[in-house]
Amino acid sequence: MKLIAQHTNCSGCGICRLVCALENFSEVCPSRAMLRIEGRFPAPGDYRIHLCDQCGQCAEVCPVEAIYLENGVYVIANDECTGCMMCVEECPRGVFFKHKHSEIPAKCTLCGACARACPREAIFLVENQQKEA
């Protein structure tokens, strides 16, 4: 499974970020979200959705191998993470975050809550082969 963005459908409402925090942390706290919406204003006047595409760069750079692939999703082993922040710094999409109220970083779990909640079909959760097709 993968998350796919349809940038031109995005209106910047931020529902995706709020449900990301609700689904993964049971908190009304969008700053904990593991995706970003970038508003490009005043010009060119549009939005860009920044999603984890499970590229695995985080696992590559983790010095203690605390990030591993499980059922197509890169997962953080919280008890092994040292909080060195290499993953946050090296994430090519800028969607690996350490929240100020948390000791260790967090990443997209591919739960699909953002895609289900988006009112405008700007984020899709699709099978890998669908993306390739």
Binding site: S11, G14, P44, G45, D46
Partner: peptide, 28 residues
């Protein structure tokens, strides 16, 4: 119109962000 532009958590955005061109100038 270029894009719909929504307020926080709004599924029905009133905001229609766009670009205008007139005899006096153009603007986003």
């Amino acid at each position: 119109k270029i894009t719909d532009k929504a307020c926080f958590c709004c599924p029905t955005p009133c905001g229609k962000y766009g670009y205008t061109k007139t005899s006096l100038g153009s603007a986003y």
